[in-house]
């Protein structure tokens, strides 16, 4: 910590977003994490080849979510009657004038926001990994991806499916469709991708390569 931060280069400093503690940046080794001494928020957590891994995982997410949306998800059969439901059906379950809003919100939370985040992340990180200039608006794109993070609820939907299965499981026969397994993998990929992501490193590389 320096006595007069005014004179030093401000880009060598970092302020904890949770508690405003000020530190001089000492980037840790890949795989290690730098945390705030006061509130233990993770500040910097670089990973080796993180960019490439994140892009690969984001593309995986895109393919899986499209598949998970289109293929049948669950199949119910009881007394000779049966019905297939895909995620698209789950989104459109809330029909009627008031519930159309809820349909849109569900669609956004479980599918469109995760897909949008994956696309934004590829857009931001693609040029960085290739050592090129970031695409125009990359900073805004990454900011949006970060703001959307709490609203991406694929994993909660997965648990919701488990709960509904048990709810109707003793009344009817339920079988999993291909989309169910795609969705299960998707949830794991989301978690792994988040683990690779070091926000500070991304912002740093967006800053050092001039945007224009």
């Amino acid at each position: 910590m320096t006595s007069s931060p005014r004179q030093t280069d401000l880009s060598a400093l970092i302020a904890c977003p949770q508690c405003d503690a000020l530190y001089t940046v000492a980037p840790p080794e890949p795989g290690q994490r730098a945390t705030c001494a006061r509130c233990h928020t993770v500040l910097i957590a670089p990973r080796r080849k993180a960019g490439l891994n994140i892009i690969a995982l984001a593309l995986t997410m895109l393919i899986l979510s499209v598949g998970a949306a289109v293929f049948p998800f669950l199949r119910i059969s009881v007394a000779g009657l049966s019905n297939n439901a895909s995620i698209l059906d789950a989104m459109l379950a809330f029909s009627g004038p008031q519930l159309i809003l809820l349909s849109l919100a569900t669609a956004a939370l479980i599918l469109f926001i995760p897909i949008a985040r994956a696309m934004l992340i590829v857009y931001v990180l693609g040029p960085i990994v290739a050592d090129r200039r970031p695409f125009p608006g990359a900073a805004r794109a990454f900011r949006l991806a970060e703001a959307l993070k709490p609203w991406s609820m694929a994993e909660i939907f997965a648990l919701g499916c488990a709960v509904s299965l048990i709810k109707v499981g003793d009344l009817a026969n339920i079988t999993f469709g291909p989309a169910f397994w795609m969705f299960a993998i998707l949830v794991v990929v989301v978690v792994v991708q988040d683990n690779f992501m070091c926000r500070w490193s991304v912002w740093k590389s967006l800053e050092t390569t001039p945007t224009s």
Binding site: A93, T106, I156, G160, C161, V168
Partner: peptide, 19 residues
């Protein structure tokens, strides 16, 4: 965020149980 689970349960049930 996890409170949303009940809404998703309703969505899944009402799309699935349409016999």
């Amino acid at each position: 965020r996890w409170s949303m689970i009940d809404v998703f349960v309703v969505a899944v049930l009402s799309s699935l149980v349409q016999l």
